[in-house]
Design a protein around this nucleic acid. Structure first.
Length: 987
DNA sequence: ATGGTAGGGGAAGCTG
DNA sequence: CAGCTTCCCCTAC
């Protein structure tokens, strides 16, 4: 062994099991990679511990040479020649479930400057598609192919020739970057297997490392090494998914949202039909080829649009890792490298990389937990320490200005503010319960640690870049570049905390992570207390934010309050800073992490902000989201509850009809769900719809792997009846439904009951004047099935109610007062069965005082006026608190929340003139004109008399009843025994 | 192979 | 069978 001895006198930077912490003497030994690797657990009387025996050559090179990301190395005259290539291949599944390649497009851009904001379509490129027949080409295909516009189409005899030609093209273009969609996970996998199977010539030219013998092909998605020398930008890689906002990351969806292009989807099962050689025209196959050409373009256009290459390069320059890892891997490695560089520069010995193992600290903690918790099943995803604090929201609809105040990048700031670092925080002892205590932050004399300084540098650099961006002379290209740079700096600073708590991280330091979040909780609590000490109500808050109710309706006043509060908070910290993040004009607060608000933009403009609601989630179909959107708009509109509730009910009725009437397109019913693991790995696949669909996709030769987002639609089960069969069996892929041409029917009832009703119900929960059963009824669902436990009590009263006598039921109802136009007298309209007092005579209504006839129209108007009076009273919305010690009576318009708003009161408010009171009043009016009931409640000779009366005065009674009923229908509670109440109307 | 925790909500399965 | 737990997924920070 060739030994080089050097003095080396710095400490190991990590604490924990088996690791020295104090500064000690170390001996550095350097030897070649041709020597065997030493085991890392050796020791001798002369030394106790050995480090860095398994360090990779890449790590050494990059650290020693201080290489921070992509740069030119002085090896030879470098060639300044960037090339990008974009590849797609469309694959058909065949007999035996083997995927073969039928078509491949190479779209090649030469000499691209990745910082040039010019979109790819404005840059020159060459397109070449290789296509081979399944059996034979359609007639005239070759001729038409040679005349294809811009893109060169090369018909190939067979798959092997296709692969060979593709390899030649790649070799000639020698691209630095390959851009694709699902390339690593799907295309490359098929390519490699087919190249090996068919013995393609010079297969290794797919990368830049020449090989003659095939190394083993690894698992799907792990074969990046075959592309050595080239960068791979895969739009569906985890790295790219972080940068692209999308629900499914399907090419079609991303084209729509990011390029505003309408990409046609091809059902993979139809691929074979495009290649049918028996047809008379080559048109269909040409369409397919052009689809591939276009896809290749889309992929490059998307990559350019989301700036994948410039951003990953900046990130890589900051971290000093390998660009390809930034493009295709997670954040952990970037974090690892930035710390490696930092600690190496300061001459610390870093912890070893533990391949495929948890860090020693993590493993140790697990053992202790195992002992402590005994029988508890050790699940991999168990929380290891406490995180952010979330306040219990004060639920309801708020209509005073709400100030959203939040701390700017809380965790990075905390790490700086409290100097939290590997080198500064003393290690913690484990207490009796096996619980790790939260360490103390270092005293203010302790010099700044490595991590806080690193974050400070990143933050300062970002500030500098942002100030550059204020320069008015900056070109758009410069602005874009700076924007990417500041973004990269922010992302890097923010990802430091996450990796402290990551058990597989080389720099895993749970106590530091726990201390950071602990300080976060402490700060948030103090912030709320400060607000309360300033007589400000904190309505909600999550981790780094507080929602302060300004309790004013003037924007200027609200801003003043926010400025005062901001100053008060910021005076308490050195670095940490709270700021106004936004002002809400109205806020519908439903649950922790679930709210919607009308946000005040600059000037008088507003926008709607939705967080966490069902309509933001991918497992709710477009139809459900549309309905939620409408309902939310109504609730946030600020209009009278009466109108809002009525519009919602009407809208839901229409939706129910449209859905059942088949007026909604299939696309609007698609639900998405991500596979958490590979479909085979689910212990109980039966119970999960998306797993079932994924398994069927795989059976047909398509791919469905962990992380994929699966689309599906609920259909009516085999038996025909909805919800008979297990839910999961009724989920079908949209392509299956389309192909089945009417075989499979969408289960509309399921959608109404599970996709539309629950989100709406949650939105309307704090709104008076409607409830679950009422909403269900509007959608055409059986309201009785949707009475919750809380409401069943109400229903119980309802049942009792129907057994009650009218006298009992309507004892609190106000009478219908009839005014006579002749004698100006006023009298109550008594029940018609009360023959002594009733003013209804066989000849018609007449004034009991002066005997003048009373006109039907006049009585109708009088009734309507009185009904409107009651409705108005209801909508005055006086609310009273049920807490007797409070007794707060207010008329807070627009606040439908059920919580008493008086400071410190925990009571619930209810409307003084409730919907039930109004409803009962309306029913009373209706009962006055209820002919059937009048007959039924009369006995003996009186019965005949009443019967004769209602026969003669049927028209009058019906007119009056209709008037009352019109309002009853609007009252929002008509579902109560509607059928029995109005059965007489249906004669 | 590889950032964290908090939290709501649905479905299925267990249990007294 | 109601009420509970467990698993799974998604989202907010």
């Amino acid at each position: 062994m060739k030994d080089i001895y050097e003095d080396f006198d710095r400490a190991v930077c990590l604490r924990g099991e088996g690791r020295a912490k104090k500064e000690t003497q170390w001996l550095k030994v350097v030897y070649g990679f041709n020597e065997p690797q030493l085991p890392n657990n050796v020791s001798s009387p002369n030394f106790s511990r050995i480090f860095a025996t398994n360090t990779t050559a890449f790590e050494l090179l990059v650290l020693k040479r201080k290489i921070m990301g992509p740069c030119w190395l002085q090896i030879k005259n470098p060639q300044v020649d960037n090339k990008g290539v974009s590849c797609t291949r469309t694959i058909v599944n065949h007999r035996e479930n083997i995927r073969e390649i039928v078509c491949a497009t190479a779209r090649i851009w030469s000499n691209i400057d990745i910082d040039d904001p010019t979109p790819p379509e404005a840059l020159p490129c060459t397109v070449r598609t290789f296509v081979r027949p399944l059996d034979r080409f359609p007639p005239n295909f070759e001729v038409r192919a040679s005349g294809n516009g811009k893109g060169l189409i090369s018909p190939m005899k067979n798959e092997r020739m296709l692969l060979n030609s593709l390899l030649v093209t790649i070799h000639r273009a020698d691209p630095d970057v390959i851009v694709g969609h699902e390339f690593l996970g799907v295309s490359l996998d098929v390519l490699l297997h087919r190249m090996r199977e068919l013995k393609a010539d010079h297969w290794s030219r797919i990368g830049r490392f020449r090989r003659s013998r095939w190394p083993p092909i690894g698992r799907q998605g792990t074969n990046l090494r075959f592309l050595s020398g080239r960068l791979l930008g895969d739009l569906a890689s985890d790295g790219a998914k972080d940068m692209i906002t999308s629900t499914t990351w399907s090419l079609t969806e991303m084209c729509k949202t990011h390029l505003k292009s309408d990409r046609q989807d091809i059902d993979p099962d139809d691929t074979a039909s495009y290649f049918d050689g028996g047809v008379s025209s080559p048109e269909r196959l040409l369409t397919f080829v052009r689809h591939c050409e276009l896809d290749a373009h889309y992929q490059m256009a998307l990559a350019a649009k989301v700036q994948i290459l410039p951003l990953t390069r900046q990130l890589t320059n900051l971290a000093g890792n390998s660009w390809n890892k930034t493009l295709n891997g997670g954040r952990a490695e970037r974090n690892e490298y930035i710390l490696l560089h930092e600690f190496h520069r300061l001459k610390y010995v870093c912890p070893d990389k533990l391949w495929g193992k948890k860090s020693a600290v993590a493993a140790k903690a697990e053992n202790e937990d195992g002992d402590a918790e005994g029988g508890k099943t050790t699940k991999g995803k168990r929380d290891k320490y406490k995180g952010g604090l979330v306040f219990e929201p004060k639920r309801g609809l708020w209509d005073k200005y709400i100030l959203v105040m939040d701390f700017n990048s809380l965790y990075p700031s905390i790490i700086q503010e409290y100097n939290i670092d590997f080198t500064t925080v003393e290690s913690v002892e484990v207490d009796a319960d096996g619980e790790e205590k939260i360490p103390e932050p270092p005293s203010s004399e302790v010099p700044q640690g490595v991590l806080p300084r690193l974050i400070a540098t990143l933050v300062n650099r970002r500030r500098q870049v942002k100030s550059l961006m204020k320069d008015k002379k900056a070109t758009p290209a410069q602005l874009l570049q700076w924007d990417i740079k500041q973004m990269a700096l922010k992302l890097t600073a923010n990802s430091m905390y996450g990796c402290l708590g990551f058990e597989y991280s080389r720099f895993y330091a749970r106590p530091l992570a726990a201390l950071t979040t602990f300080k976060g909780r402490e700060i948030l609590t103090h912030t709320r207390e400060l607000a309360e000490s300033m007589q400000l109500d904190v309505v909600y808050g999550d981790t780094d934010s507080v929602f302060v109710n300004s309790n004013v309706t003037e924007l200027a006043e609200a801003l003043k309050i926010s400025a005062e509060f901001k100053k008060a908070v910021n005076d308490r910290y050195k670095l940490l800073e709270i700021d106004l993040d936004g002002i809400f004009q109205r806020l519908l607060l439903l649950q922790k992490k679930k709210y919607a608000a009308v946000k005040v933009e600059d000037g008088s403009r507003t926008s709607t902000e939705v967080k966490g609601l069902d309509m933001k989630r991918r497992e709710y179909c477009v139809l459900s989201k549309t309905v939620s959107q409408y309902v939310l708009e109504q609730i946030l509109s600020g209009e009278a509850t009466e109108a809002v509730v009525e519009r919602i009910h009407e809208y839901l009725t229409t939706i129910g009809e449209d859905v059942r009437g088949g007026k909604i397109k299939l696309d609007e019913f698609i639900i998405f769900k991500r596979l958490g693991k590979n479909p085979e790995d689910y212990p109980d696949a039966k119970s999960q719809p998306h797993v079932q669909v994924a398994l069927r996709m795989k059976a047909r030769g398509l791919t469905a792997r962990a992380g994929d987002v699966i689309p599906y639609v609920f259909c009516i089960g085999e038996g025909g009846e909805t919800a008979k069969t297990a839910q999961a069996d009724r989920a079908k892929h949209p392509d299956e439904v389309r192909r089945s041409s009417d075989e499979l029917k969408i289960d509309y009832e399921h959608y109404l009951a599970h996709q539309i009703l629950p989100p709406i119900e949650r939105l309307c929960e704090p709104i008076e004047g409607t409830d679950r059963a009422r909403l269900a009824e509007c959608l055409g669902l059986d309201p009785n099935r949707y009475r919750s436990a809380a409401e069943s009590e109400e229903r119980y009263f309802g049942t009792l109610d129907s057994l009650m006598s009218d006298a009992e039921r309507f004892k609190d109802a106000e009478p219908f007062l009839v005014r006579c136009r002749s004698c100006r007298g006023q009298v109550a309209f008594a029940p018609i069965s009360d023959r002594e007092s009733s003013l209804l005579l066989p000849s018609g209504p007449a004034c009991p005082a002066c005997q003048s006839a009373l006109g039907t129209a006049s009585l109708q108007v009088q009734l309507e006026t009185q009904i409107r009076g009651h409705i108005a009273k209801y909508y005055e919305s006086w609310t009273v608190c049920d807490d007797p010690t409070c007794g707060n009576r207010t008329r807070m318009m627009g606040v439908y929340g059920r919580r008493c708003l008086r400071q410190g009161c925990r009571g619930t408010v209810a409307f003084e003139y409730s919907d039930a009171t109004l409803y009962n009043q309306l029913r009373f009016y209706l009962s006055l004109f209820d002919a059937e009931k009048a007959v039924k409640t009369s006995t003996g000779s009186k019965a005949d008399e009443v019967k004769a009366l209602v026969d003669l005065q049927g028209d009058f009674l019906r007119t009056m009843a209709a008037t009352a009923e019109k309002y009853l229908n609007q009252s929002g509670r008509r579902w109560v025994q509607l059928s029995t109440l109005f059965s007489f109307m249906k004669m």
